[in-house]
Write a protein that binds this DNA or RNA. Structure first.
Lengths: 200, 200
DNA sequence: GCGTAACCGGACCGGCCGGTCAACTTGTTA
DNA sequence: TAACAAGTTGACCGGCCGGTCCGGTTACGC
């Protein structure tokens, strides 16, 4: 364990994380460290004191979201209605991504070890949710957990194309995606799903 | 009409367009003009002689794809089986985007006038295809042409997350998307669709 | 063939951005 | 309250990138 942070340093760190989250959400990887620092009201040097690299800063922000989603997934896993549990998770995931798109999991470059672990935990939990939902017949049987993971990123992406979108527009496209995941109107899926470990 | 291009200039122009298409497809807007020039085997200055701006170059590449898709859409519009016609179009659109994602329509900055027109034509044609397919009952009635336009960009985006994806993996996700567009398993869609003109 | 205009290319410019550093400030602790 | 470690800062560096420009080259009309 490292020394406890000085009071002002701790305050600055959280200001920095908040500012980075906003700035990354608004401008993606384009966001410059200088802008983030300005938004946080601190000097650029301070940013690099807290996080040696811009990627590390991004990783810290993403780690936060990933961990909270993983916690939610584990919590929903023990519920006795697997279908609604999965749908509830998808809603939370799609909603959260309005603030910070998952493409950052891809953009975060050669990924942090802690981030990689967190992602693995999150993905594992989702796979669990999915297979339980399939057992309950709430979701078609010919898809994998990875399919669901990929498709849950869709609403945020789609909404990013419509400027001045109402804040809940993502729900419309989540509903469309979910309807494709249901067993009812399922048509055969031609190429098999990618292997479980093949995601960036 | 401007003077006819000199032979070498014409050759270089098409080399340049091909190289730009590949480079943009591979690295997105990150692709540098210098790299594009190198791939085309010409000097950087020549690039800017043909296209005053990087955005103009991108616009030219995108225009090409947009026009060809619009032509296909118009051609499919007159067929007497609107459902399969739409599905066929979606397949072509999703397939083409493996080479050049539509997010370029968004990234192309303050869009070229010609590109804007082409996009308008393409979108109009798609709206036509969609409403005919709805008339035939092949597609759920509670979605708009714009919904379809947005959703048809999904497969390319999803596949971009899995490295070393088999070249036809997009078909899997197109099938998933299409199943969500069918009337059979349709559940209510909560926020209304965005206005027809609200796309970047 | 020859003159010329169109074309080519790469050195160069200015601006931006991630990252460093040394001088300065401030919280902490004894 | 004194003294020090921890923290802060913004000027600065090097590299990259879009875009310019001019000396040299090449296709084309005569």
């Amino acid at each position: 364990m490292t020394r406890a942070l000085r009071a002002d340093a701790a305050r600055n760190r959280s200001l920095l994380l908040a500012a980075a989250a906003e700035e990354f959400a608004a401008r993606g990887m384009e966001a410059s460290v200088a802008d983030i620092a300005r938004r946080a009201g601190i000097g650029k040097g301070t940013v690099f004191r807290h996080f040696p690299t811009k990627d590390d800063l991004l990783a810290a922000v993403v780690l936060d979201r990933v961990d909270s989603l993983a916690a939610l997934a584990r919590q929903l896993y023990v519920r006795d209605d697997p279908g609604p549990a999965l749908f509830e998770f998808l809603e939370a995931a799609a909603g959260k991504q309005q603030q910070l798109d998952f493409s950052f999991l891809r953009d975060a470059g050669d990924i942090n070890d802690r981030l990689r672990d967190a992602r693995e935990r999150l993905f594992g939990a989702i796979v669990g949710l999915v297979s339980r939902a399939q057992g309950a017949g709430a979701i078609r049987a010919d898809i994998t957990g990875l399919d669901v993971i990929l498709m849950m990123c869709v609403p945020a992406h789609v909404v990013s194309f419509v400027p001045d979108a109402p804040p809940d527009l993502w729900r419309r496209y989540l509903a469309l995606v979910v309807d494709g995941l249901r067993p009812e109107g399922a048509h055969p899926l031609s190429p098999p799903a990618p292997g479980t470990d093949s995601v960036r």
